[in-house]
Amino acid sequence: MLKKRIIPCLDMKGGRVVKGVCFESLRDAGDPVESAALYDRMGADELCFLDIGASVENRGTLFEIVEKTASRVFLPLTVGGGIRSVDEIRRALNSGADKVSLNSAALLNPGLLTEGALRFGSQCIVLAVDVKREGSSWRVYSHGGTRPTPRDAIEWIVEGVRAGAGEILLTSMDRDGTGEGYDLDLIRTVSRSVDVPLIASGGAGSKEDFLSVFEAGADAALAASLFHFGTVDLRDLRRTLFERGAPVRPPFDLLKEPFP
């Protein structure tokens, strides 16, 4: 059976993890490679690097970090934040990323999804969408959630999949950072509208939130500060989900086991 995935996200700016990962064995909370290695051993199913600075001059730094991470963390990596061209997608993949997430660049030019999918396969093209609720629908925002667009979330996601996206990373801006739980209504609606995998993001505050979002139809659940601040321990989360019958990989703790 295909398992539901737990994905810690490392938000980065200038090559450092924003907020920082709090864990007693981690000497440098801002080091993305060390943080990724720790999450790998604690039981992540996949990792996401998001460059929220997204400045062009930092792009090289981002790819270097991906390369260093992929040299010692043997786990799927998704990279996003400011990637604008097929050449940048290629560089990210060559650095060791398995998937690239596109957000503002895809809104500006949906053809980028198609070009990327034709060249590298849609399995590595993730469409990241930031949305805010307006009445009974959701509006898409661009540029890290700072600019409203005229687009409706469901329409844009359907169009993005048709253009070539192989997965959706969907963030509820209403819930992001609140710890009030994922927007289940949103997840249900999007999950019914497309036939590609869906990663839910924004709002995770407890272990129960993961159970509910998987039941609502998400194939994967992403969280950042929840894990960084130690509110929820990844090992403990996996154990709880597994014991409560959620379709996740069984508990393991590589911190206690020899490599490989």
Binding site: L2, K4, R5, S122, Q123, E167
Partner: peptide
Amino acid sequence: GKVPQIGWN
């Protein structure tokens, strides 16, 4: 079912 298959199986 969803395509592609992405994840642990």
